[in-house]
Amino acid sequence: MTATEVGVVEENGGAVEPPSASLSQRLLGANALWTFLILVGLVVFFTIAAPSTFLTQYDITQIATNAAIYLVLGVGMTFVIITGGIDLSVGSVLILSGVLAAEYVVHHGGYNAHWPSIIVGIVISMATGTAWGVLQGFVCAKAKVPPLIVTLGGLGMALGIARIITTGNDVAGGAPNALVETLGLGKLFGVIPWIVIVAVLCTVVFGLVLAYTRFGRYTYAIGSNAEAARRVGIKVERKLIQVYALSGLMAGIAGVMSLAFFHTTTIAGHSTDNLAVITAVVMGGTSLFGGRGTIVGTVIGVFIPAVLNSGLVIIGVQQYWQDVAVGAVLVFAVYLDQLRRRSRERS
């Protein structure tokens, strides 16, 4: 025993020493490590198969742009799933937020709206998403309705309201040119798309929040053992409402991104966003039972389908194989999570 290891008392020589968690494990979590290797394997494979096209600057930009909206939704979803919950409503909340923003912009300049009106529109979208999240969080936490049902109901209601407001037609003129040309199509220094920068900012900020702050720690604690959290004085209900509010805020931001990228409110789209995002989060090693997960893992989980899609198109294979592969990886990831849980319960 060295002098530096203060307090480590060695008295039980027969005990099996638990392996110390390495840095990479801590960053990724054991499950995300596997998924990361799969992602690396895909990249290596496509790079060898199509060296002149795959992972060129153009290709990377395409992959990142396609992943941007899922990434933002995935950040909120990671928090929710770590608490042991689920948010099925993200796609609908994205649409509702975008529709309300577009409705405002249409009456304040339309296609030719200036930045002050656009900014108000952005704020409306973010506020709508957040408010919707607070509402869902309140019903989950206080009324104790299971999150699956609350957000399934929320999915239907948000989409219904969006359609009522627009009478079922996309809002013409809701995506002003100034927004489309910057957030939608514009690139920083002509290289990095703004939509990717927004996604990276959301990911980094909330990745740090999850890993290094009290908010993140309590998110894990609630998902791991809500009763234990309550007994040490953590305000579990309030934290849950905040977590669902965060997921709503992310949907609101994604609503603006979608508006800018697709030039319209896309009320007929995004119906499978929720499943795609949940798949990405779970592939990234976040446990559906709560208590475990990382934003880094979610990034990996979002990029697997994005890389597959791009790579399969490039090598001339039907991109529908992506769905098959992602489905298999998803089941594998949850199988690993189950293995880990079972081995723990045996100990």
């Binding site: 009763e227 959290a229 040490v232």
Partner: peptide, 17 residues
């Protein structure tokens, strides 16, 4: 009343980080 996914140091300080 421990959080099984958090480490011993985190559990020791749970609610009193």
């Amino acid at each position: 009343a421990l959080a099984p996914d958090l480490d011993a140091a985190a559990n020791l300080h749970l609610g009193r980080e």
